[in-house]
Simulated assay, not measured.
Amino acid sequence: MNTASPGGDERPARWLTDHEQQAWRSYIQATMLLDDYLDRQLQRDAGMPHIYYALLVQLAQAPHRRRRMTELAIALKITRSRLSHAVARLERNGWVRREDCPSDKRGQNAILTEEGMQVLQQAAPGHVEAVRQAMFDRLTPEQVGQLGEIMRILAEGLQPQDSAADLPWLR
């Protein structure tokens, strides 16, 4: 087995301990299952994938239910191309509309329509119940606090400090 780190670095790899490997595999399995569970629930009950729901939520929480497309891509951690396709689909459904950004000729805003807000309001109770059943009903209040703290630490550590980082949502 090659003990060097990937990328030509000659330092020995810091392999995961059995305990870390078990935690890592449990994390991967749980996040994949949770993503699939929530996506299936939203497809079945609201006729949309989880990413569309997340996009509608972002717009609903924005001032005047509008947000620049670039800001949406960053918030959702998806490429601008994927966002553009999602917004186009939501436009065809009548849930979102686009308009040019008055302060930037190259930019566009996505705006949540009244119909989109109604769809979100109808989908939200079922989605929240699915999140509660899949996650929070299985944890003690102490575990919920620990999970929140762990996820905050991971997110802060992964948030790029370099604005020139090659991130999908900046492409």
Results as ranks from 00 to 15, higher is better:
residue 2 N to M: 06
residue 3 T to Y: 02
residue 3 T to V: 01
residue 3 T to L: 02
residue 3 T to R: 03
residue 5 S to C: 12
residue 6 P to Y: 04
residue 7 G to F: 07
residue 7 G to H: 07
residue 8 G to D: 05
residue 8 G to A: 10
residue 9 D to K: 09
residue 9 D to F: 06
residue 10 E to K: 11
residue 11 R to E: 11
residue 14 R to V: 12
residue 20 E to N: 07
residue 22 Q to K: 14
residue 24 W to V: 14
residue 24 W to M: 11
residue 25 R to N: 13
residue 26 S to V: 07
residue 26 S to G: 13
residue 32 M to T: 06
residue 33 L to S: 13
residue 33 L to V: 01
residue 38 L to M: 10
residue 44 R to G: 00
residue 45 D to S: 12
residue 45 D to Y: 00
residue 51 I to Y: 06
residue 54 A to M: 11
residue 58 Q to I: 04
residue 59 L to C: 05
residue 59 L to A: 05
residue 59 L to P: 03
residue 61 Q to M: 04
residue 63 P to I: 05
residue 65 R to W: 06
residue 65 R to H: 11
residue 66 R to W: 01
residue 66 R to F: 05
residue 66 R to M: 15
residue 68 R to C: 09
residue 71 E to D: 14
residue 71 E to A: 15
residue 72 L to N: 04
residue 75 A to T: 04
residue 75 A to C: 10
residue 76 L to V: 01
residue 79 T to G: 15
residue 79 T to R: 09
residue 80 R to E: 14
residue 83 L to G: 12
residue 84 S to F: 12
residue 85 H to K: 10
residue 86 A to H: 13
residue 87 V to E: 05
residue 88 A to E: 12
residue 88 A to H: 08
residue 89 R to C: 02
residue 90 L to Y: 05
residue 91 E to I: 04
residue 93 N to D: 10
residue 96 V to Y: 02
residue 97 R to H: 10
residue 99 E to L: 13
residue 100 D to W: 01
residue 102 P to G: 02
residue 102 P to Q: 00
residue 102 P to M: 02
residue 103 S to E: 14
residue 104 D to E: 08
residue 106 R to P: 00
residue 107 G to H: 03
residue 107 G to W: 02
residue 108 Q to N: 09
residue 109 N to I: 09
residue 110 A to L: 04
residue 119 V to F: 00
residue 120 L to C: 04
residue 120 L to P: 04
residue 126 G to P: 01
residue 127 H to R: 07
residue 127 H to Q: 06
residue 128 V to Q: 10
residue 131 V to M: 10
residue 131 V to I: 14
residue 132 R to E: 04
residue 134 A to K: 00
residue 137 D to E: 14
residue 146 Q to H: 13
residue 147 L to K: 06
residue 148 G to N: 13
residue 149 E to D: 13
residue 152 R to Q: 15
residue 152 R to N: 14
residue 153 I to K: 15
residue 155 A to N: 14
residue 155 A to T: 08
residue 156 E to K: 09
residue 158 L to D: 11
residue 158 L to Y: 07
residue 159 Q to D: 13
residue 161 Q to E: 09
residue 161 Q to N: 08
residue 161 Q to V: 08
residue 165 A to V: 03
residue 165 A to P: 05
residue 168 P to F: 03
residue 169 W to C: 13
residue 170 L to M: 07
residue 170 L to V: 01
